[in-house]
Design a protein around this nucleic acid. Structure first.
Lengths: 142, 142
DNA sequence: TCAACAGTTTAGAATAAATATAATGTATTA
DNA sequence: TAATACATTATATTTATTCTAAACTGTTGA
């Protein structure tokens, strides 16, 4: 299957028509070897640098949110001024370096399965995320 | 030790002078049996309802942030439009009900210790938080 | 005790992310 | 291919948070 067909499929499954802009967004997000983290602004910049297609903020927001709803992207729970997203939707966790505002993946194998024994009536768990905040380890500091 | 002395102590340890406004913030945050979650706006409202002291948003932000730095409050990592804070600084985790925008505590005993095997050179872990997002469990839905 | 200083409070302005709007453009369909 | 429904965009709006600067208050030391 050609790339663009995959993307058209992803878009349709997300309830979106395949447009020039949205296919470009797919290319940037999914046509790479490595998964990555991004903010909306960063994504817009990447698109600008890679293509001579213009994509507005609104389109990027809409598309990203549709993909999250469908499970093609993940939002990373953080109290940062901007939202961070992840193209890696497999089960894994994150370090967040607050000093450098940087996210680092923690591979699933590096964390024991998080097993929550408690349940809430009428509710089911949709996702479980572990955020480990890290800071400089200044031994001189007491 | 009288309450206000405790609060004055907490404030001084946070590098803040004990003022009328700040002591009132302490009363609302710490002078209750149960710990609770709050947003800045909610905290301002609680103060308005409880006292005839006027406290500005800026003061509340400053004081809350100083307390977080000192470890008297915790910020809950979430992608919500507002930041959520917790007066419970003991080790525990959260459900977040995205449909109702509501946080529910998960007691430490209800989650196995999260053991992260990976380390980052020069960095140490400051906190580990588990966020479990929950949604309605509509069995009829496929 | 009180003057001087350093820190505090506040209203309002500034900033910035995210969302809404409405006019123009494009994919889909029959 | 015409009609329709959905998309895109620039721009405006909304809203949380931070900044600012003037007025105020706690603290210190003489």
């Amino acid at each position: 299957m050609a790339y663009s067909e995959q993307y058209i499929d992803k878009l349709r499954k997300s309830g979106l028509r395949p447009t020039k802009q949205r296919i470009k967004i797919c290319e940037v997000l999914f046509d790479v070897e490595k998964t990555f983290h991004f903010t909306i602004k960063e994504l817009v910049k990447i698109i600008e640098n890679q293509a001579n297609i213009k994509v507005s903020l609104a389109t990027v927001y809409n598309t990203v949110h549709a993909f999250i709803k469908k499970g093609y992207l993940k939002e990373i729970p953080l109290n940062a001024s901007q939202s961070y997203y992840d193209t890696n939707v497999t089960h894994h966790h994150h370090f967040f370096d607050e000093e450098e505002n940087k996210l680092i993946d923690i591979h699933q194998d590096d964390v024991d399965e998080v097993n929550i024994k408690r349940t809430i009536p009428g509710k089911k768990i949709r996702s479980v995320e572990v955020i480990a905040k890290i800071v400089s380890d200044n031994q001189s500091q007491k």
